[in-house]
């Protein structure tokens, strides 16, 4: 078991293997994200029942919650890749960590903007400095910090090490975001989906789960596309890349 995991780890550490296997995975992931997202969002917009108190404004939930979840998981992925960079100096982890940053930042941005738009008719304000909103804004700034650091350091390996440290330290923010609605008295509502009992109607729940799964597939597609570019850039001297582009 451990041996085969180790072998898998070494395989994925090879840029050529990563490029080949993700190339085969991409069409499936694209199909899956379309099949989950399009019906999910259409159902969420037109068929799911309106919310008792919020009316139709709640329909923003079908993008807001997936975006928030992905922004946090994306950061977690970046921090874990950062650990791999620092401990094992794996080149593939450097490339994944660098690729995740702008995509994660996009989802943090979507989460904040849709939340703000949802807040206006629901709370009567675009923004409050409560614990959930503030910690989420800090997450966006952490992503932007990682991107700036990556852009500021010329040498790819030194940039990866520096951003790894920043991403790992910044991961402290993740539990703060998650538990902010429990630790502090916030305007933000508590979690809608829980392992034991969910706070929402089953019709809304399944629609939301489909959107979450679909957005995760989309996120995987985006990370893979961006990482493959990074591989082409860094491995351009290798014979397999030259053969691939036809020179």
């Amino acid at each position: 078991m451990f041996e085969s995991l180790k072998r898998l780890y070494h395989k994925f550490g090879s840029p050529k293997y990563f490029y080949d296997i993700t190339g085969r995975m991409l069409p499936w992931l694209v199909a899956l994200s379309v099949l989950l997202l399009i019906p999910g969002l259409i159902y969420g917009l037109g068929f799911a029942p309106p919310e008792k108190y919020q009316g139709n404004s709640y329909r923003v939930i079908y993008i807001h919650v997936p975006a928030a979840s992905i922004a946090m998981s994306g950061y977690m992925l970046m921090a874990v890749a950062g650990v791999v960079v620092l401990v094992w100096r794996m080149k593939m982890a450097e490339m994944v960590a660098k690729s995740v940053a702008p995509i994660g930042a996009s989802f943090a941005f979507i989460c904040l903007v849709t939340g703000s738009i949802w807040g206006k008719p629901t709370w009567g304000t675009w923004w409050v400095w409560d614990a959930r909103l503030t910690s989420m804004l800090i997450l966006l700034f952490l992503y932007l910090g990682v991107m700036a650091l990556n852009a500021a350091i010329e040498n790819a390996q030194s940039a990866a090490r520096a951003t790894a440290v920043l991403s790992i330290v910044g991961a402290v923010n993740l539990p703060i975001i998650k538990y902010s609605v429990e630790w502090w008295n916030t305007l933000h509502q508590p979690a809608s989906i829980r392992m034991t009992s969910s706070a929402i109607d089953p019709e809304m729940l399944y629609t939301l789960l489909s959107c979450i799964a679909g957005f995760y597939c989309l996120f995987a597609v985006l990370v893979i596309l961006s990482t493959r570019c990074e591989i082409l850039l860094r491995e351009q001297r290798s014979s397999w890349v030259k053969k691939l582009v036809g020179v």
Partner: peptide
Amino acid sequence: MGKHGPYVWSAYGITLVVVIANILAPV
């Protein structure tokens, strides 16, 4: 959307723009 149209559609519209930008960038 029962008076909430501008809010719901702007949220979906902005998301669509950001997602398309993220797809086009690596291509």
